[in-house]
Amino acid sequence: RPLEQTEIADLPACDSLSPGNLQLVSKLKNPSGSCPVDVSAVWWEIAGLKTPCIITACEYVVSLWKALDTWQWEKINSWHFTEVPVLQIVPVPDVSSLVCVALGNLEIREIRALLYSSDGAHEKQVLLGSGNIKAVLGLTKRRLVSSSGTLCDQQVEVMTFAEDGGSKGRQLLMPPEETILTFAEVQGLQEALLGTTIMNNIVIWNLNSGQLLTKMHIDDSYQASVCHKAYSDMGLLFVVLSHPCAKESEPLGSPVFQLIAINPMTSLSAGVMLYCLPQGQAGRFLEGDVKENLAAAVLTSGKIAVWDLLLGHCMALLPPVSDQSWSFVKWSGTDSHLLAGQKDGNIFVYRY
């Protein structure tokens, strides 16, 4: 077995108040040394078979890990970067054997597609875009949306992937007159794309026509809200936001996520649910991920909290393991696992 492999770790200690529903199944020990920044679970074709894999990103190295039978991980490829560090992994749904990464310092300067085939014939990076990139998201149907430029010349572009990872086509969307912070697909409306802006507006595009359909202001109680999930139901648009700037002294507790309903016809919105920490728990949202009805967040306290968005309850609180605060968390795109990373490079895989 290669040296760069993982071990099966003991279950981390959970206090009696927060056993939650998280069960540790595997630990991936990343020996790469540099600062870990992100993790993602993807499908990769290895020896002709689609295999669940984990992608880890450190500042200058992105690694591909293949699952072995015993919940251990074998590193099968690394992509190295020398000039610009990696900021985030950008998984693209409906695409296997390809992952995108955003590189930059404080802001994204480049987006690259990373490819590798187990025959070793196709290991490469493809530069997809460069410049002053503000936001990027992988979309269903092999697409990637990004916004770039300054306010005066902001460009919102959807790229479709060819099989070799290159660009098959590019389409421009009408830019709003304010900087876009995040994108989200709208479940239930395949051709709709949602964006949140720096002015606390939500914008909706028609991905077929490129039209900017509407701009809707949301409550100013929380600035710079980030959209993690959006779905259309019964004529309303439901949006799950996180509030990195929320104060911990809110009377209702500490809202980490919020579900709001918006009527796109009138632009009127109403709060549906606040997802707060249990009483006695402190912490603000640092970063997080939402998949289906589950939301996970790394908190300023160093813990990870998981909410069931339908029940509205915090379902699990995961304390730091070995006194190492959590630094990032992602739901697996290949199964119902939670991937949690620490600053020392360890990635823990939990079954929920």
Binding site: M174, L189, T214, S232, G235, A261, N263, P264, M265
Partner: peptide, 23 residues
């Protein structure tokens, strides 16, 4: 939330907004 607070709702809001928006 109270639907009355959000004004008249259309199940086809995406289609309607697409037909009204600038091409």
């Amino acid at each position: 939330c109270n639907e009355a607070d959000l004004g008249p709702i259309s199940l086809n809001w995406f289609k309607e907004l697409s037909s009204e928006a600038q091409p």
